[in-house]
Write a protein that binds this DNA or RNA. Structure first.
Length: 640
RNA sequence: GCCACCCUAGCUCAGUCGGUAGAGCAACGCACUCGUAAUGCGUAGGUCGUCGGUUCGAUUCCGAUGGGUGGCUCCA
């Protein structure tokens, strides 16, 4: 890198010569960009820079305009600085940690001397307003390490000192200044604070310094910002929509499940919730039967010795509930696999049995830390749609592909897009390097052959093997981990599993653990939010409500209800002595798919009046036709 | 587990700068017999999460504890 040389910047078909070390803002007059005031950064050879950075390489440049994804990143990073600046004005003794931009906004971590509560956010926002209105210019500068350290020593900014000390010797130590605020920062930043047209501080949370629970707990303030007020508004509307769809709220309103102080993290299932669970499991069993699975059930409580043998005692004990029976220690199962291993050993297996696909809808209990519990998404007791597949090492790839395909078939019915992650060996694990390499390669090969892309998650595997995880994307763009495929080369060893090979010798089988839905509880939570409580007909706990107009029509409504009931349709009869509008409203609030009205007209014409949930009047239908319609819609598992 | 905040009737929420509480909906009763998102009137319902402290007096202030919410760490 030569600071005195001349650089050549290419933009479209133009070329400009500039002096090395000048910033992009100084290049502007020489390049014919349109809407220059809307440019907040540039790509040079595909790498993002802001307008403050000195140019040190020749290359092709591409402007970054307001409202692109990259520009939002720049904007939000700058907004986090302004928030820190405002906080520093209001709380001069605060210590600064870090303040990056994140997916939907930004945060800054502070070490406050005083406690900060959500009420303080308003005041901070007001101070930010002042800074933004001043339209302070951002300015980038470099400091020698020594100066940078002494600056922060003087101000007792211990976190900043730690950050500088962690920077490599050869790295430049850069700062950004706007107004009276200086922060150690790589950038990029917007040209001036006035670029922030809309911002909002959202919430306060605790966060460990550098994400390590052994470190001090800092105070994190989250916020977001946009280049346009209306984009902030629509973001806030989206948050409101997510609140409306919250499965904890809908679960209560729709009477699906409940939680009680007496069992934190343990869901209670109400009649309608149980209907939903059973429908889901019926569907699951049907798909698994077609895919060649059998189903078993293993006990909830098993002896400690078993958990020692499986490695859970050593690696998973903190998450296990321990109990005692006849003075010997037992544990409630946190996973189904050890029980499954015992079942395998029931008899001698031949290579001809393979692959053996053994499902188990198993209730597991895990002690989760109290702070992580979250509705059905994170509970202490949940039902895994588990299966263990026993097979030859040579069958790994094909079998994993079959599991992926089964998973896809099931997700497709709900209309969930998803992505796949491959997690490799964690620090705390059992098994040899060789086993791990082989298992990881097996998963990798299957993913490559299957052809859908995947993300690599180093060290995120289970303690007994690498895993493939499926992350569903719901209708609000949030991700949820559901299915998982884990290749296990350790349990077969620990349980001394064997099969008789074609050569008549005892050999070690390979085991896959896998789930598709992951946890029935979590999956139902996701379904509730995905559909906003308005389930497609095949899943709806109540499919039809029949309502007579007055007491005179109760009998006719009753026979309509009986007919539906006999046809296997989940119907309810609302024969309360209430006005039609009242009952109608209640059925709509409960998001019932179909409402049947029975009055004089219907009795005379031998029809039923049908209203589709959501307010669509379908007019009078003959009962036979209506039943067919319901059956077809149920059968097709139509998405909405 | 950690940080901040919250906990008042079945639900959603007012309220009390310390003098033992109120609305709407729901429930129940009565009247109305009704045509596609709330008929009217009335009745009942709360030791203000629990325990302790300060105080003449605590739902209110303080402390502990339980549960929840938003995050962090962890995870199906």
């Amino acid at each position: 890198m030569c600071s005195l040389s001349t650089l050549i910047l290419k933009f479209k078909d133009k070329e400009v010569e500039i002096e090395s070390g000048k910033s992009f803002s100084s290049v502007f007059p020489d390049l014919a960009f349109k809407d220059k005031e809307k440019i907040v950064g540039l790509f040079i050879n595909g790498i993002l820079y802001d307008l403050h950075m000195p140019i040190k390489n020749s290359g092709t440049i591409e402007p970054v305009y307001v409202d692109s994804e990259e520009s939002l990143h720049i904007l939000r990073h700058s907004t986090s600085h302004i928030m820190a600046q405002a906080v520093k004005h209001l709380f001069p003794h605060v210590k600064l940690a870090i303040g990056p931009s994140i997916k939907d906004g930004f945060y800054y971590d502070f070490d406050f001397q005083e406690t900060i509560s959500p009420q303080d956010l308003k005041q901070i926002e007001e101070e930010m307003r002042r800074i933004i209105d001043e339209d302070q210019h951002f300015e980038r500068f470099v400091k020698p390490r020594k100066d940078a350290l002494s600056l922060y020593k003087k101000e007792s900014e211990e976190y900043k000192l730690e950050l500088i000390n962690d920077l490599g010797e050869e790295e430049e130590i850069t700062f950004y200044r706007n107004g009276d605020f200086i922060d150690l920062c790589r950038g990029p930043h917007i040209p001036s604070t006035g670029y922030i047209k809309a911002y909002k501080l959202l919430n306060i949370a605790g966060a460990y310094w550098r994400g390590d629970e052994r470190n001090p707990m800092l105070t994190r303030i989250y916020g977001t910002s946009f280049f346009q007020e209306k984009l902030l508004t629509s973001y806030l509307v989206k948050i409101e929509e997510a609140k409306r769809r919250d499965h904890r709220k809908l679960g209560k309103e729709l009477e699906l499940f409940s939680f009680h102080d007496e069992g934190p993290g343990f869901a209670f299932w109400l009649p309608k919730g149980v209907v939903l669970r059973n429908i889901l499991l019926d569907f699951w069993r049907e798909e698994h039967r077609k895919a060649g699975y059998v189903e078993v059930q293993t006990p909830l409580i098993l002896k400690k010795d078993l958990w020692i043998q499986s490695g859970h005692w050593e690696n998973y004990r903190d998450n296990m509930y321990i109990t005692e029976i006849d003075e010997s220690p037992f544990a409630i199962k946190p996973m189904n696999c050890p029980g499954g291993m015992l079942l395998y050993k029931e008899k001698i297996h031949s290579y001809r049995d393979f692959p053996m696909r053994v499902g188990e809808v198993g209730l597991v209990h895990r002690h989760e830390k109290s702070g992580v519990l979250h509705g059905l998404f994170r509970v202490r007791s949940f039902t895994q749609d588990d299966a263990h597949i026993f097979m030859l090492p040579s069958q790994i790839k094909e079998e994993i592909i079959r599991v992926i395909e089964l998973t896809e078939r099931i997700y497709e019915v709900f209309g969930f897009p998803y992505h796949i992650e491959l997690s490799t060996r964690p620090d705390k694990s059992i098994g040899t390097d060789e086993q791990w390499d082989l298992a990881t390669k097996g998963l990798e090969d299957a993913l490559i052959e299957h052809g859908k892309g995947y993300e690599l998650r180093p060290k995120e595997g289970a303690f007994y093997g690498p895993k493939i995880d499926f992350h569903l994307e719901d209708c609000l763009g949030r991700f949820h981990q559901c299915g998982t495929i884990q290749l296990d080369m350790s349990l077969p060893e620990r349980f001394d599993l064997n099969y008789i090979s074609s050569k008549g010798k005892e050999e070690r089988p390979v085991v896959i653990h896998r789930t598709v839905l992951g946890s029935i509880e979590r999956f139902i939570g996701i379904l509730i939010e995905h559909y906003g409580g308005r389930f497609p007909l095949w899943l709806a706990p109540v499919q039809v409500v029949v309502m007579p107009i007055t007491e005179k029509h109760v009998e006719a409504a009753g026979s309509a209800f009986n007919r539906l009931n006999d046809e296997g349709i989940r119907a309810e009869l609302d024969d309360r002595n209430e006005k039609l509008g009242y009952k109608m409203r209640e059925a709509e609030v409960k998001k019932i798919p179909y409402i049947v009205v029975m009055g004089q007209k219907e009795i005379e014409s031998d029809t039923v009046s049908v209203r589709k949930g959501g307010g669509i009047d379908m007019g009078p239908l003959e009962m036979d036709g209506f039943v067919d319609l319901l059956k077809q819609e149920t059968e097709s598992k139509k998405k909405q």
